[in-house]
Design a protein around this nucleic acid. Sequence first.
RNA 1: GCGGCUAUAGUUUAAUGGCAGAACAUCGGGUUGUGGUCCCGAACGCGAGGGUUCGAUUCCCUCUAGCCGCCCCA
Length: 445
Amino acid sequence: MAEQPVSKKKKRAPKAPELLRGFKDILPEEAPYWQRVRAAAGVLLADYGYGEIQLPILEATSLFKRTIGEHTDIVSKEMFSFLDQGGDSVSLRPELTASMARAYIEHGMFNRPQPVKLYSLGPAFRYERPQAGRYRQHNQLSMELFGNAEPSADAEVIFIAYLLCKELGLDVTIHINSLGSNEAREEYVRLLKEYTKPKRSLLCEDCKKRLAKNPLRLLDCKEESCRSLFASAPLLVDNLDEESKKHFVAVLEHLDESSVPYELDPYIVRGLDYYNRTAFEIVASVAGDGGVSDEASAHLAIGGGGRYDGLVETLGGRSTSAVGMAFGLERVVSAFKKSKASIGSEKKPQVFLAQLGEEAAKHMFTLFETLRSSGLKVRANFGKSGLKAQLELADKLGVVYAAILGQKELLDGTVIIRDMENGIQEVVDLAKIVDELKKRLKRGR
RNA sequence: GCGGCUAUAGUUUAAUGGCAGAACAUCGGGUUGUGGUCCCGAACGCGAGGGUUCGAUUCCCUCUAGCCGCCCCA
């Protein structure tokens, strides 16, 4: 074997592994915000009768092709798909609703009392270019209501989503539209194409593509020239079938009654094929710095959803009406962080346990557990030996009291309680440490 | 997939075609068992590759990544 020449410089370390593009770690500093959001969602959804369902991250690719639509961007170019060792095409889920419907059918949930209300929380994957509020792995909170065709079901989902936002201190508006029945929508697309074709040469490049691929998106173009072109175009809402129109009006009436702030937005078109009738987005107005350029961030949708009456049948289940929505949790958490509700969410530890000498150190685990199980928020560093270093740490943690157990105290069966604010120390009976600490903490409050 | 901007320590950053400096954070010390201030010390950095050059962290190119916009979406 050839000797590697020993360079006088230290040999270059192999490059440290890095996060995959568009992926991210959530560090302990950020985790509490996630915990708050998850906890709030869990309580609220349980209160409204939604049961949690935990779904796999990997599914058959065909599940998404059949539901979301083979020709949608999500399926055709954004899925993490691969062949497994058995040669089957599998995909990391790009969203949760398809799996929900799959589970509903697979576990015979149509035999349960309807509606069946489910929620699920977990990662979804899309191979996209990362951007603000967009990751290749993002977490969704998805809630679905199966087996109820009534407008009240649409409104219920929206209402609960709104409640969660409110609880998290988010300032949101529901942007809502109706896509009508599939037939009415097809008819409308024909109408829109007819309207657009004579003006084709005036369209921007993107719109030319949209005309062929996804005409509903034409109306959503940001180009000024296209906007004015479509200002007088026919709108989907004006071309709804009678049933859908009635349904839509009823949904809005429900929202009015429950004081959910909404805006009619005829331009909402969902990128997933399975939607019909109600489609909505939850838009958070992020409290910016008051600048004029906030508009982009102010319009970031933190969630979206709608009705998908055909989905279950598409997958081979019996005809089941359904409605649901999903939050993008990264976006929710980011908005939550800036909201007033998140302030003061972290609780500081109350007591630091310091030890001196080997004998005392051996008592630390038990003593720590005694304090912890009595409900005190305790911190300690079991490994540090110097009292100075330990108190320094206590100070950084911002505890109210330090409890110091040294060789001498151990022999006497006592412990020192030090008020970290003024440095006053008292020697108390070790057996009464919990009561003594609680007494002082109460007094301080 | 397309476009704009950016890349120096864990973080925020400075300077420079000739040994990269600071602040905060981290770790250790300022004799025996007492924190916040102060003092001393240590470890840690030019995203990767190529080119120009006697010499590149600096100039050029490519790549990669990040931010932002488009597309699309949560």
